[in-house]
Design a protein around this nucleic acid. Structure first.
Lengths: 218, 218
DNA sequence: GTCTATAACTGGATAGAC
DNA sequence: GTCTATCCAGTTATAGAC
């Protein structure tokens, strides 16, 4: 008989290592974390990380990859649905929603690991060392589909402008994912980094307005 | 007679250490860099970093602080000038310009160190560990002045919304400062991370439109 | 100010018992 | 799969000669 999966103490050790790595890498970066710290947080032996994942670098990749495909899948679903509703060319805001809402949904889901995973993606996307390679390999194929949809929604716009607007969107999203707590301090508690509801509800129209201004739609 | 400052071999070693630390910390993060690497890049002895700056942590702070005051000064100047021109309440876009243009100007200045310093600020702002404390202590006093100006330019708006919009602005700026090279790849060379001219020229209207949409001005 | 030498420690990685 | 024991390269930091 298998123990119930809901009890964290019964979680397979392999998964516990990934959970711990996710949280620590997200917060302290690749070099700021030791395998010993990860093992301690996961409550497993140090050598076990090596047994399951090989080198530290490979554990980092495995942590990143575990949820990347899931995120890509739900996003692709959202984009396809928007395209179906929009008869092939959904309006701008629907595309941006399809890009952002899945993340919001995962954050609000039952699995709290998504919060750490999002922070990990923010860390990787902000880093020149990791970002260029890893984001390109694992996320850009899907992002290219979003860019293509944006081009269709905003014809008569130079592709260059669409790329820059996507860059600003990516920046706003990345800092939101990082949940650094800075907005909490700056606003003296008025806003919270953890308030995903407000963060995404406002981000979508904010970004949509920016696109419209730059890409010259009414 | 002082040697010409343009010759790097005559730069005082202390400054060379800061230059090297700036570049390496920005790219690899605090934990991703060793004092030996910094010393090697600066072409000085390992012990010298310790002699001048004390512990590694203090060298990191010193690197961050060297240009922070300068940046705050030019920004404050820009904000005051905008307020003078706007009779106390400059229009939205003038405030955003006063926030962003000084950075663009420093990046385009003769001192290439500003490029690395900007990436360092991006690293710190993206990090939950460093960001909350260091950004708050050294940048938030001035940022609060910008927020106050935004509140005046956008009356009848809940302060909460202004803070969130500033957060999106900060995110777009941070990813731009990081110059990760991702936009280069995604756009297949159409756009360059290093193209500050375009990056800021488009960011200002993009962000202004977002503010207007959220904060309900025409 | 500058460098040599070294102390004291921590990191990743693995071999081998169970 | 799991854990003990250990290797050794590389780290910060400093004491002391010049």
């Amino acid at each position: 008989m298998k123990p119930p999966v809901s009890d964290p103490s019964f979680t397979p050790k392999r998964e516990r290592i990934l959970d711990a790595a996710e949280e620590l890498f997200a917060r302290h970066g690749y070099d700021g974390v030791t395998l010993r710290q990860i093992a301690k947080k996961a409550d497993v032996d140090v050598a076990l990380a090596n047994y399951h994942f090989g080198k530290k670098r490979d554990l980092f990749e495995a942590t990143f990859l575990r949820r990347a495909q899931i995120l890509n899948d739900v996003r692709l679903q959202a984009l396809l649905e928007a395209e179906k509703e929009g008869d092939g060319t959904p309006p701008l805001e629907a595309i941006i929603s399809a890009f952002l809402r899945p993340i919001q949904a995962l954050k609000l889901s039952s699995d709290p690991g998504w919060r750490n995973y999002c922070a990990l993606v923010a860390y990787i996307n902000s880093s020149a060392v990791w970002g260029e390679e890893m984001m390109h390999r694992h996320f850009d194929p899907l992002v290219s589909r979003y860019i293509a949809a944006l081009k269709k929604a905003l014809p008569n716009t130079e592709p260059e402008k669409i790329h820059w607007c996507y860059h600003y969107l990516s920046g706003a999203l990345t800092l939101t994912l990082a949940q650094t707590g800075r907005i909490d301090r700056l606003s003296e508690g008025l806003c919270q980094s953890t308030d995903s509801q407000t963060a995404y509800d406002l981000m979508i129209p904010f970004v949509a307005a920016g696109f419209e201004r730059i890409c010259g739609e009414p």
